[in-house]
Design a binder for these strands. Structure first.
Lengths: 357, 357
DNA sequence: TTGTAGGCGTTATCAA
DNA sequence: TTGATAACGCCTACAA
């Protein structure tokens, strides 16, 4: 009776052994009711154990569980920059899914540095996590040394999920940039726009190329035509620069400006305002991404919503589910019509081709 | 020779035992060179072990280390919403500091639900992390059941860091809302503004009260006077509403509008534009927070920069450092002058009272 | 300096 | 159904 665990919250964390002793059962039994799989313990024992656990404030030692099981209840998430809402939203979806599955999320920040990324994967691998979700960059690129680490991880029974495009035998979750842009183009041409200028990232940037191609296709569907394409970047500054060039090249009233990213569209907004052109009436503007700024800007920006939260959630499912359908992971996007492209009341249009209407 | 670990990346993760065998040394020696504290191993052995480890692709099993040591190399971070850039920036600072200290960051999302928060702390406690950083809400409020968990954690040797205000014996990192707002008020009154309208959150919200008081004090320092205070909220909608009320009450040209949050200031901007008042010339506007939107809006917003990344970093330090100076944790803020308050070139002014100038 | 062996908190196998 | 007991992978006195 001397070394019985005392009141809750006094000394070192109580162990399963403490619980077993307090409940007057064996370690094994305590383990079974508290963590073990299916119920195979007499109800009376079960209750005694649960009461004891509650009484002394027992919390399972996850590390010990992990060593014993050979696998930790952890999902490792690699992002380039967690302060960036882009990755933040993804992380949010991952966290939501992880919680559902009783997993804990461990996060590492690569800062866009491949060396660092490799080192971090190495470290995270040490956690023996269930899965490893790579969201380290917006444009996928798996270096050789990194893929070695990843192979080692999968070989050891871990699961790798890559966002954006598959890397080796990794599962992946991708966004339908083409389809989303296509839906946007179609919606706007149906709104009556006939000429468009596109502000894109440099050719070769996969997502940008897809968006440009999708938009062009959709815009053409109802008779629209793209008159200029400027390749510069996804940032506000690049959008600003491209817009200036477009203005210099001559821009008719009623033209639509499509920025392949929201920030580029915001830059265009600024350049237009400086040039004395009225965005939203004289010239229409649309972006891509539906980032928070698209709501805050004046006029509010028509754009394409990317369900980043869902991307994260699906990534987690891909990391956890044993059966997994690759089809479900081409996430469709949604058009969001706002004030910057007048012509109809604000609405949301599905990313499926809008059909005749 | 039959069960020697083969080439890298084939089977289950290699163990320290594998390394020791491959290097022809004892488990203990391998442990010492790979993980153990200070160098006490012969150079030749050290090299053999390191070569072997590299050769078979060994990665320390963090869980096993944690069970053996009784403490995991983990920092647990609790946030309300990781998709919110506010928490994202904090998380970023935490991650940076953690990496410096060889720690891994495990994150949990409370969604602002106290029940959930308590449950998550319980789970995270099971990791036996070095420290637990609570950034679960913007306004601190530690419920009873939660604080019980926290006490248990500290009793077991963990360290709790609360952001915003101390909870029990927890260390804490706080932001100098008063000082930052004071510096802003002083800078703007020195720019020549004489009348100000304040758009604040409801009285009782600590940060808002501090900002209002600080601003009033600073603004008065050079002869400015606050003519109206509207209490509503931190959101854009509340800022919009408050601004409408202020306009209805009558607003002289040359007046300064201080939104106690950037979003409130953005709402004010919109209300002003709708009312045909020219923000940035007829009426000046300032916000608080220096969130990304403050740059993207037109005119760009004068505001007070909150170093959230630094908040996270300091929180990590508080969780890790054994000696710790409470003084260092009142983080000072920085005034950022932009186009919405014309009168000088854009500059940054330190948060220290500006002194005679 | 190196190795042996016991222990960390759990899980899981196998008798009882 | 229960309870000893051997792993799990690593750390660390203690001994050599």
């Amino acid at each position: 009776m001397t070394d019985a665990p005392s009141v809750r919250g006094s000394g070192p964390a109580p162990t399963l052994d403490d619980v077993a002793r307090a409940a007057g059962v064996s370690l094994a039994t305590a383990s079974r009711v508290l963590n073990g799989s299916r119920r195979r313990v007499a109800e009376s024992y079960r209750q005694r154990v649960e009461a004891a656990a509650r009484g002394i404030g027992y919390t399972a030692n996850l590390s010990a569980q992990a060593t014993a099981r050979g696998k930790a209840s952890v999902i490792a998430l690699l992002v380039a920059d967690i302060a960036d809402p882009y990755f933040g939203q993804i992380a949010s979806g991952v966290a939501r899914g992880a919680d559902e599955s009783g997993l804990v999320v461990t996060i590492a920040v690569t800062e866009g540095d491949p060396e660092r990324e490799t080192r971090l994967v190495r470290t995270l691998r040490g956690l023996r996590p269930h899965g490893l979700i790579l969201a380290a960059s917006r444009e996928i690129d798996v270096a050789a040394r990194l893929s070695q680490e990843l192979d080692a991880f999968t070989a050891a029974g871990g699961r790798v999920v890559a966002l954006g495009a598959g890397a080796g035998d990794a599962r992946s979750v991708v966004i339908d940039n083409f389809g989303g842009a296509q839906a946007l183009g179609a919606a706007l041409s149906e709104l009556g726009y006939r000429r468009a200028v596109v502000l894109a990232a440099p050719a070769g940037v996969r997502s940008s190329d897809d968006r440009v191609a999708g938009f062009s296709a959709g815009f053409a569907s109802a008779g629209g035509v793209v008159t200029q394409i400027h390749h510069d970047g996804y940032t506000r500054d690049s959008g600003y620069r491209s817009m200036r060039r477009a203005l210099a090249a001559g821009l008719d009233g009623g033209t639509l400006v499509f920025g392949a990213s929201d920030m580029a569209a915001v830059g265009a907004l600024i350049a237009l305002r400086e040039a004395g052109r009225e965005a939203g009436s004289d010239v229409a503007v649309a972006g891509f991404g539906d980032t928070p700024v698209s709501r805050d800007v004046t006029p509010s920006l028509t754009t394409v919503h990317i369900p980043l939260d869902e991307v994260g959630y699906q990534a987690l499912r891909a990391a956890v589910d044993s059966e997994w359908e690759p089809d479900a992971t081409l996430l469709s996007l949604e058009v969001v019509l706002r004030d910057s492209t007048p012509g109809a009341d604000p609405v949301r249009v599905g990313s499926q081709p809008a059909g005749p209407a």
